[in-house]
Design a binder for these strands. Structure first.
Length: 121
DNA sequence: TTGTTGACCCAAG
DNA sequence: TCTTGGGCCAACA
């Protein structure tokens, strides 16, 4: 399952995050079988904003860091906008951009399920 | 091939 | 809770 572009693998997993839930970059990386590729996941999502037309269905806002915070730093995509999107889904985001992972964390998929998804697309 | 750059993670202090 | 330092990975020049 490493034949497909890394970007596409990331997007495929992120698309499976249910509404009202969040997960972390590191968790997405683990689902792809690359436990230490968290930075690469962030890189993939940052590239997303440049191709918003093709991947408008990817809920990038549901991916935050492992501390349950939005530490995004970008002129095109502000942390405040991400917080706003999450609140629209019913997720409580505090003023300092914190999210209670005990309530909203999406445990994610197992490796086999991810494999099925990637193969099926 | 090498070096740099991120929307990161984690352990220490 | 916050800051540092080391580690990892993929894209790009």
């Amino acid at each position: 399952m490493t034949e497909r572009n890394f970007y596409e693998q990331v997007y495929a997993v992120v698309r499976r995050i249910p509404r009202g839930k969040v997960t972390s970059y590191g968790r997405v990386a683990k689902m792809l079988g690359r436990p230490n590729a968290a930075r690469a996941v962030g890189y993939a999502l940052s590239a997303l904003k440049d191709h918003r037309d093709q991947h408008a269905d990817v809920p990038w806002q549901r991916v935050i860091n492992s501390q349950g915070r939005i530490s995004i730093v970008s002129r095109e995509t502000s942390a405040q906008r991400q917080a706003e999107l999450l609140r629209q889904e019913g997720i409580a985001v505090s003023d300092d951009l914190r999210i209670n992972l005990d309530l909203y964390l999406w445990e994610g998929l197992h490796l086999l399920e991810v494999d099925d998804i990637l193969r099926g697309q």
